[in-house]
């Protein structure tokens, strides 16, 4: 076959393929309205974006905690039977890789305070998830941060103050460095 015929053949195949190329936009689904997005977008970012209006106090949080949380997490947040919430030591105690039995809790392991609000609101209490009001979640968050010695008893938690709480474990966090290959194990 002469060269020009090959080229023409390839050109024809390319044209045909182009006809069958999938569109970038199928037009399936329906537009999401601003209202329904606002109702569904509950995630809180570490900079506080997504936090709702409202506020909560340590004192109110202590009352809610005793009524709705203590049966699973212990009277002071250390007794269990389920996850220990109040750290028995500080983030700068003996490194976890040398103390595998060391308990990981909010005060010594969690890198962002906003996560407490986000998680409590979406998943707690375990037997009634989604039942707490935003103010109740702010109060519980305040109480848990206070019990972990991260804020004092008079600090009010709201969309402004919560992202500013300093979490001492954050400085230890590094992003995954494993890459496979035949180099040293990571």
């Amino acid at each position: 076959m002469p060269y020009w015929a090959c080229v023409a053949g390839i050109a024809m195949i390319s044209c045909e393929r182009r006809v069958n190329t999938a569109p970038t936009h199928f037009g399936y689904g329906r537009p999401a309205t601003k209202q329904e997005i606002a109702a569904k977008a509950i995630a809180i970012r570490p900079d506080g974006k997504g936090l709702p209006a409202g506020s909560g106090t340590v004192q109110h949080g202590a009352v809610i905690y005793a009524g709705k949380c203590a049966s699973c997490h212990g009277v002071t947040g250390t007794e269990g039977p389920f996850n220990v919430l109040v750290a028995p030591d500080t983030a700068d105690a003996v490194p976890f890789d040398r103390a595998p039995q060391r308990i990981k809790a909010i005060g010594n392991y969690w890198p962002y305070a906003t996560t407490v609000f986000d998680y409590v609101r979406r998943a707690m209490p375990f037997n009634a998830p989604g039942s707490l009001s935003d103010n109740e979640v702010y109060s519980l968050t305040a109480y848990l941060l206070y019990a972990n010695k991260l804020i004092d008893s008079s600090t009010v938690m709201n969309a402004k103050t919560l992202p500013g709480v300093i979490m001492p474990a954050r400085k230890y966090y590094v992003t995954d460095n494993r890459n496979g290959g035949d180099g040293p194990y990571e």
């Binding site: 230890y172 590094v174 494993r178 496979g180």
Partner: peptide, 13 residues
């Protein structure tokens, strides 16, 4: 938690 007190995050693979 890995060596030197570090905590490895987003270890997906």
């Amino acid at each position: 938690p890995i060596k030197d007190g570090k905590i490895r995050q987003f270890s997906f693979t």
